[in-house]
């Protein structure tokens, strides 16, 4: 694993940075808790303060885990899409998966008014379920169409079409909704990392791990795709199969994150680019772990900013990622002049 060795220092630095950011993320919130007390809560479980203990274990830690899982999953999905489509503008949402999830939520909220079972349906699980069903339907459509298409670029266009179809449908639904329902939908579309129990996180984490691990077997085809599909094929890669697995994994990851945290923009597009700018490699054996860590770091930072230290407000995470992230990426691109796969 000699190539990994030459990047060893980098991964040590990234891991340390990750831990520091994680520490910062746990320290900030509407209630001020001294850092040392957080450490003692984390490691010794001593009862420094009943309330603080509760805030850390029941609120901040689950939120941090959601940020880590969501950020890394979106970032990796972005990397897979950019390589598959050989297009630096591709991101996990390009397949229209999150639009499917949004449509699922919009339908759910409207159904509540028609069915009259208010309150019963507005649990965490019903949102997760509606978003999952929405993204799953889009995923099935994409995969079915993809197996009939020779040209990979057509999938990109079809994904965009799904996206605009779903948004238009949501608009129609919104037109017939009450102000209260609209507000509920918009609140969901802001994205949120909080409010997940450990049971939910366990399911989230399990699906995440099962979906991420198979990517290891795709490293080789991903690298050969850097030369284009014809060369990849000449190197023994089965293009149709590879494409199917890449689309399946991306759909599952994007659907999963959107179901648990709502749509979170920017991470999937920006993290692969930032990583490639800094690492100056296109080897997916290096990019894959680096993008995972960086995705988690970026979403943790965004969440820390969203807490607005020393205030009681929490800003929508979906807005924070872009407001603070976009200028950084623009600055980096202008400085380095060139963006590559």
């Amino acid at each position: 694993m000699n190539i990994l060795n030459s990047y060893k220092t980098l991964f040590v630095i990234l891991s340390l940075l990750f831990l520091v950011i994680l520490g910062l993320n746990l320290s900030f919130g509407s209630v001020h808790i001294p850092f040392l007390d957080i450490v003692s809560i984390l490691f010794k479980n001593s009862n420094t303060n009943e309330n603080w203990h509760l805030i850390i274990t029941e609120y901040r830690i689950p939120k941090a885990i959601t940020a880590i899982l969501g950020g890394s999953a979106l970032a990796v999905s972005g990397l897979l899409m950019q390589t598959l489509f050989r297009n630096p503008l591709a991101d996990p949402y390009i397949l229209g998966i999150s639009s499917g999830a949004s449509l699922g939520i919009a339908v759910l909220i409207l159904l509540i008014s028609f069915g009259g079972f208010t309150g019963l349906l507005i649990s965490n699980w019903s949102f997760v379920l509606a978003a999952s069903v929405g993204s799953f339907v889009v995923m099935l459509l994409i995969l079915t169409l993809a197996s009939n298409l020779k040209n990979t670029m057509s999938i990109l266009i079809i994904g965009l079409m799904f996206g605009s179809f779903a948004s238009a449908f949501i608009n129609v639904l919104a037109y017939f909704s009450s102000a209260e329902q609209l507000q509920q939908y918009i609140a969901w579309s802001f994205g949120s990392l909080g409010n997940h129990s450990y049971t939910e996180l366990l399911i989230y984490g399990a699906v995440y791990v099962i979906t991420i691990i198979p990517i290891l077997w795709l490293i080789k085809p991903l690298n050969s795709l850097l030369l284009g599909e014809n060369y990849a094929q000449s190197l023994g890669v089965n293009i149709k199969k590879t494409r199917f697995y890449l689309l399946l994994i991306t759909s599952l990851l994007t659907g999963l994150v959107t179901a648990f945290s709502g749509p979170i923009a920017f991470v999937g597009l920006a993290v692969p680019h930032l990583t490639k700018l800094f690492l100056k490699t296109s080897n997916h054996l290096i990019l894959l772990p680096a993008v995972l860590i960086n995705g988690a770091i970026l979403l943790l930072i965004s969440d820390t900013i969203a807490q607005l230290p020393h205030s009681e407000f929490t800003l929508p995470i979906n807005a924070i990622t872009s407001i603070f992230g976009a200028p950084v990426v623009i600055w980096l691109i202008i400085r380095r002049k060139k963006i590559r796969l």
Binding site: P88, L226, G228, Y231, S234, L279, K280, S282, R340, L341
Partner: peptide
């Protein structure tokens, strides 16, 4: 093995 006329996609290779 082949050498094609295909334009290579942009990358850090």
């Amino acid at each position: 093995s082949v050498v094609l006329t295909d334009q290579l996609p942009e990358s850090n290779l």
